[in-house]
Amino acid sequence: MSKYVSIRDIAVGAVLAEPILNRYGHLIIPSGTKIEEYHLAFLEKWGITKINVEDEAAPEIDPALLHIAKERVAERSDWKPSNPLEEDMINAAAKYVAQLLSPLKAVHESY
Protein backbone atom coordinates (compact mmCIF):
# COMPACT_ATOMS: atom_id res chain seq x y z
CA MET A 1 0.00 0.00 0.00
CA SER A 2 1.16 3.49 -0.74
CA LYS A 3 -0.29 6.96 -0.47
CA TYR A 4 0.24 10.46 -1.78
CA VAL A 5 1.65 12.73 0.87
CA SER A 6 2.45 16.41 0.73
CA ILE A 7 6.23 16.95 0.83
CA ARG A 8 5.64 19.16 3.86
CA ASP A 9 4.45 16.07 5.74
CA ILE A 10 7.07 13.60 4.54
CA ALA A 11 9.35 12.18 7.21
CA VAL A 12 12.97 11.54 6.28
CA GLY A 13 13.35 7.82 5.62
CA ALA A 14 9.98 7.40 3.85
CA VAL A 15 10.27 5.08 0.84
CA LEU A 16 9.23 6.34 -2.58
CA ALA A 17 6.53 4.11 -4.09
CA GLU A 18 6.77 5.39 -7.66
CA PRO A 19 9.53 7.10 -9.59
CA ILE A 20 9.56 10.88 -9.79
CA LEU A 21 9.83 12.17 -13.33
CA ASN A 22 10.25 15.72 -14.50
CA ARG A 23 7.85 17.25 -16.98
CA TYR A 24 9.86 15.84 -19.90
CA GLY A 25 9.55 12.32 -18.50
CA HIS A 26 13.16 12.10 -17.33
CA LEU A 27 13.76 10.14 -14.18
CA ILE A 28 14.68 12.36 -11.24
CA ILE A 29 14.41 9.95 -8.32
CA PRO A 30 13.84 6.21 -8.77
CA SER A 31 11.13 4.24 -6.98
CA GLY A 32 12.31 2.61 -3.73
CA THR A 33 14.55 5.52 -2.76
CA LYS A 34 14.68 6.43 0.91
CA ILE A 35 13.82 10.10 1.11
CA GLU A 36 16.52 12.30 2.64
CA GLU A 37 16.42 15.96 3.61
CA TYR A 38 18.15 17.02 0.36
CA HIS A 39 15.54 15.20 -1.74
CA LEU A 40 12.84 17.33 -0.14
CA ALA A 41 14.67 20.57 -0.85
CA PHE A 42 15.19 19.38 -4.40
CA LEU A 43 11.53 18.46 -4.89
CA GLU A 44 10.46 21.82 -3.62
CA LYS A 45 12.69 23.51 -6.19
CA TRP A 46 11.07 21.44 -8.92
CA GLY A 47 7.64 22.52 -7.68
CA ILE A 48 6.61 18.97 -6.79
CA THR A 49 4.17 19.15 -3.89
CA LYS A 50 3.05 15.57 -3.41
CA ILE A 51 4.84 12.26 -3.73
CA ASN A 52 3.71 8.67 -3.51
CA VAL A 53 5.36 6.88 -0.59
CA GLU A 54 4.99 3.40 0.88
CA ASP A 55 2.88 3.09 4.00
CA GLU A 56 4.94 2.20 7.00
CA ALA A 57 4.53 -1.48 7.72
CA ALA A 58 2.21 -1.97 10.69
CA PRO A 59 4.16 -3.47 13.57
CA GLU A 60 3.18 -7.04 14.44
CA ILE A 61 0.94 -7.22 17.47
CA ASP A 62 1.87 -9.65 20.20
CA PRO A 63 -0.87 -12.37 20.16
CA ALA A 64 -0.98 -12.48 23.96
CA LEU A 65 -1.62 -8.74 24.03
CA LEU A 66 -4.29 -9.09 21.37
CA HIS A 67 -5.97 -11.72 23.51
CA ILE A 68 -6.05 -9.39 26.53
CA ALA A 69 -7.36 -6.56 24.35
CA LYS A 70 -10.13 -8.78 22.97
CA GLU A 71 -11.20 -9.71 26.49
CA ARG A 72 -11.31 -6.05 27.47
CA VAL A 73 -13.45 -5.16 24.48
CA ALA A 74 -15.76 -8.14 25.11
CA GLU A 75 -16.13 -7.16 28.77
CA ARG A 76 -17.81 -3.92 27.78
CA SER A 77 -20.39 -5.57 25.58
CA ASP A 78 -22.80 -8.15 26.96
CA TRP A 79 -23.40 -9.84 23.62
CA LYS A 80 -21.63 -12.47 21.55
CA PRO A 81 -20.96 -11.73 17.87
CA SER A 82 -23.66 -13.40 15.78
CA ASN A 83 -22.15 -12.95 12.32
CA PRO A 84 -18.73 -12.42 10.72
CA LEU A 85 -19.14 -8.63 10.56
CA GLU A 86 -19.85 -8.36 14.28
CA GLU A 87 -16.82 -10.58 14.87
CA ASP A 88 -14.80 -8.21 12.66
CA MET A 89 -16.01 -5.17 14.63
CA ILE A 90 -14.68 -6.74 17.84
CA ASN A 91 -11.41 -7.81 16.22
CA ALA A 92 -10.76 -4.40 14.69
CA ALA A 93 -11.45 -2.72 18.05
CA ALA A 94 -9.23 -5.23 19.88
CA LYS A 95 -6.36 -4.51 17.49
CA TYR A 96 -6.61 -0.81 18.29
CA VAL A 97 -6.82 -1.45 22.04
CA ALA A 98 -3.79 -3.76 21.79
CA GLN A 99 -1.80 -0.95 20.18
CA LEU A 100 -2.77 1.31 23.05
CA LEU A 101 -1.68 -1.35 25.51
CA SER A 102 1.70 -2.15 23.95
CA PRO A 103 3.70 0.84 25.26
CA LEU A 104 2.47 -0.01 28.76
CA LYS A 105 3.71 -3.54 28.34
CA ALA A 106 7.08 -2.33 27.10
CA VAL A 107 7.44 -0.11 30.15
CA HIS A 108 6.39 -2.96 32.39
CA GLU A 109 8.94 -5.35 30.90
CA SER A 110 11.80 -2.92 31.26
CA TYR A 111 11.55 -3.12 35.03
Partner: peptide, 10 residues
Protein backbone atom coordinates in the same frame (compact mmCIF):
# COMPACT_ATOMS: atom_id res chain seq x y z
CA UNK B 1 -20.58 -4.45 3.63
CA UNK B 2 -17.65 -6.49 2.31
CA UNK B 3 -16.10 -9.12 4.61
CA UNK B 4 -13.72 -7.67 7.24
CA UNK B 5 -14.97 -4.17 6.43
CA UNK B 6 -14.17 -2.86 9.90
CA UNK B 7 -10.61 -4.16 9.90
CA UNK B 8 -9.97 -2.19 6.75
CA UNK B 9 -11.94 0.89 7.84
CA UNK B 10 -10.49 1.29 11.33
Amino acid sequence: LPPAAFSSIT
